[in-house]
């Protein structure tokens, strides 16, 4: 074999061999077990932190709210829709049964007009929506910027929840 061919073949062989070795060394362990990906990635995705607890956990302690709510229009609303993610709150309460909840773990109590308006502000796309097919009732729509804005007697700004109990609107 001519000299230059010998050298070239050696160089290429070394290169390819190095590549194959590196490939074996660098390839992640669980790669290819289920498909062309790291099977471990599924577990890693599953292991992420939760924030929403689910309303089943809420009713464990706040039973009265639940019964309150069940009678009204907001019956099918999950607690965390308005109060925000509550897993930390629940976990703390589970751990220290009688302990006082630190302020940072207290859940949000929405009381502004803006927060009610998120669902109830008049909107052409909302007007015909039937949400409760059993009672065939529509979602109540108001113009939150005008509807009973001020108390007639005291002339002070009114909040929605001063007239409507959010758990039994």
């Amino acid at each position: 074999m001519p000299q230059q061919i010998k050298r070239l073949v050696t160089a290429f062989a070394v290169f390819i061999l190095m590549f194959l070795v590196l490939q074996q060394v660098l390839k992640p362990n669980s790669f290819g077990k289920l498909g062309h990906y790291r099977a471990m990635a599924i577990q890693e995705n599953e292991a992420r932190e939760l924030h929403y607890a689910g309303s089943a956990r809420c009713t464990k302690c706040h039973d009265e709210m639940h019964t309150d709510k069940a009678a009204g229009f907001h019956a099918q609303l999950q607690c965390e829709v308005c109060h925000g993610p509550g897993l930390k709150h629940v976990l703390y309460a589970d751990k220290f049964k009688d302990g006082k909840l630190p302020d940072s773990l207290k859940l949000h109590k929405p009381d502004t007009r803006k927060e009610c308006a998120i669902c109830h502000q008049l909107n052409a796309a909302r007007i015909k929506i039937v949400f409760d097919t059993v009672n065939n009732s529509m979602i109540k729509q108001v113009n939150a910027l005008k509807h009973n804005l001020v108390d007639k007697h005291t002339k002070e700004e009114l909040k929605c929840i001063e007239c409507h109990n959010p758990h039994q609107p």
Binding site: Q3, Q4, I5, R7, A11
Partner: peptide, 15 residues
């Protein structure tokens, strides 16, 4: 040149 030394006409023709 990968330490090659052969520059005979034959080798060059092969190149």
């Amino acid at each position: 040149s990968l330490w090659t030394t052969d520059i005979s006409p034959k080798a060059v023709a092969l190149d």
